[in-house]
Simulated assay, not measured.
Amino acid sequence: MCVRLAATALAMLVTLPLTVPAAAQQDLFQDRLGGPLPSPSITTPNLPPALPSAEPDAQLSLSALLSGPGTPLRQGLAWRVYEDRGDGTKPSIIARSGEAEPHFTLAPGTYVATVTYGFASASKRIVMGGQPTTETLRVAAGALKLSGAVGDQKIPPAQVLFSVFVPVGTNSEGRLVRSGIKTGELLRLPEGTYHVVSTYGESNAIQRADLRVENGKVTEATLNHRAATVTLKLVAAAGAEAFAGTAFSVLTPGGDTIREAIGAFPQVTLAEGDYVLIARHDGQVYTREFKVESGLDRDIEVVAKSG
């Protein structure tokens, strides 16, 4: 009986810690840790800061002025916007406009804006950062306006054309800017000196001049030719009707061919000087020497002499 009592008492001792109140257990842990238990957090866990929102597209507004006088340019403009990736590759065109003051909507980034005014141009590097941006480009340019004359008489626009060159070294016609320029046409150019060639007719009536273009100014020039237009005829007698289908050749006294033409009375514009005219008709060849005097337009007849 004593044995049973001891076993029961042992069982009671073993089960006692399992019935310790919660408050007592907390006091026990406080004693061991040296302070109160931390309260559980109910706040949001610490997260990385949110990334800033992407910058929006923004408007780029452009305009152009003439260097020097600062005159706004309102027409004749060609705008291009290039994306500058900064990796050494050729920039790609992303927008164009022919307006005087264009507006482009662009994403954040680096761009190059260019404007062309005739043969003059300007460019500017622009950084877009999500805010509207306004830029003005200054174009260093002037213009040429050309015409031709013989003495005091203006050459009809349809009969004269001009070519403009940039001199390179000692070569006045080093680089062609443009050919086929008509009388009165406004040719916009960067500031500098240019070599102008005027061709009257389709032969050797040619005049040349060096002209200076200044920023913001129009250089007007008239190139004066010493030439005349002659009408070629093969006739049986002076003043008679011309033979149709005649082949003409105009040569210098040294034998160089200046112009060839076929017809009853073709017209040829020639620089003043001495010439030889050869007329061929029905297997026969006829010749005549003649002289061209500046500003004196006239008929040049070759008489077909028999025998």
Rank of each mutant, 00 (worst) to 15 (best):
M1D: 06
A6M: 08
A7D: 10
A7M: 12
A11D: 04
L18C: 10
P21T: 14
D31R: 15
D31G: 15
P40S: 07
P40A: 11
T43I: 13
T43M: 14
T44N: 11
L51P: 01
Q59C: 13
Q59H: 15
L60I: 10
S63W: 01
L65S: 06
L66Y: 02
P69T: 04
P69E: 00
P69Y: 02
G70T: 02
T71R: 07
P72V: 04
R74W: 01
G76P: 11
A78Y: 13
W79E: 02
R80S: 03
G86T: 05
E101Q: 14
E101L: 07
H103Q: 15
F104A: 08
F104M: 09
V115D: 02
G118L: 07
F119I: 14
S121V: 12
K124G: 05
R125A: 07
I126D: 03
I126S: 03
M128F: 09
P132K: 13
P132A: 14
T134K: 12
E135N: 09
R138H: 09
V139Q: 06
G142M: 04
G148S: 10
G151N: 11
P156M: 11
V160P: 05
V164R: 03
F165Q: 03
P167H: 12
P167S: 11
N171F: 08
S172L: 14
E173P: 03
R178G: 00
G180K: 06
G184S: 10
E191H: 10
Y200S: 00
A205P: 09
I206V: 08
Q207W: 06
R208H: 11
G216N: 07
L232M: 07
A237P: 01
A242W: 02
T246E: 04
S249W: 10
P253G: 01
G255S: 02
R259K: 13
R259F: 10
E260W: 02
L270R: 08
V276F: 09
G283Y: 13
Q284S: 13
Y286L: 09
S294W: 03
L296P: 01
A304V: 08
G307A: 12
